[in-house]
Nucleic acid binder design. Structure first.
Lengths: 113, 113
DNA sequence: TGGTTGGTTCGCCATATGGTGAACTATATT
DNA sequence: AATATAGTTCACCATATGGCGAACCAACCA
């Protein structure tokens, strides 16, 4: 159902880099300033800022500058979009092996408690 | 748990392109020869073959040549790896937002529906 | 045997990506 | 006021990406 190409391009492209994935994982623990985010990586700040720009461009993170510190936080919606796309695909391929029914059921809950 | 950087790089990079995502979706319906796969797209065969090479390099598809026809099929394991990674991340962020939601709710009970 | 078809390979090109170092701005800190 | 700190911007570089057209090989068909 969902088929928004452009955003997915950006999200998947963001996740194709280990540095950026690490940033995402890190930010899921909570917000953090740029320098602290950059510290674990063996690249210069300019290069790291480009990564942040890619992530922010993809809508995966947001950032706000207070004083001289820019604080970044996760924006998980786009992450969910990526997972949704994969889940859709999985529904198809797993359907061939047998779990389609379970998935459909989980999507169409209609009369629980 | 799972933290295999290199394969994920290739998988996410593969999925960052709409043509390649379309190929994946298409192949989930069943195997198909190269030409048939390429037909919907407005690019030349050489360019399309590069996309297939990227997908195959990422382990998302396999292909076999019989006669002069190369038939491609999906190899869903790597797709699952990507979804697993995202599911892990979601587990974290949903854990947080769930706790947050629970907290907010616990502070604001009093006038629901 | 000769043509058509399905793929492949080759060279080429424009642009994007991921990195660098150096210079610069603006906000703390002392 | 002087200095350190956190980011930012800039010019630059090497390589990867995604596309092209043209030439090519192998196999099926007539």
């Amino acid at each position: 159902m969902a088929n928004q190409p452009a955003p997915l391009d950006a999200v998947f492209h963001s996740l194709a880099d280990p540095t950026r994935r690490a940033v995402v994982t890190r930010l899921l623990q909570g917000e953090a300033p740029v320098k602290q985010l950059a510290q674990p990586f063996a690249i210069g700040l300019p290069a790291f800022l480009k990564h942040l720009a890619v992530l922010e461009g993809a809508g995966l993170i947001r950032s706000e500058k207070r004083g001289r510190v820019r604080t970044c936080r996760i924006d998980a919606e786009r992450l969910a979009a990526a997972e949704d796309w994969l889940a859709e695909q999985r529904a198809v391929w797993q359907g061939r092996t047998d779990r389609l029914a379970a998935f459909v059921e989980s999507q169409t809950i209609g009369s629980p408690s």
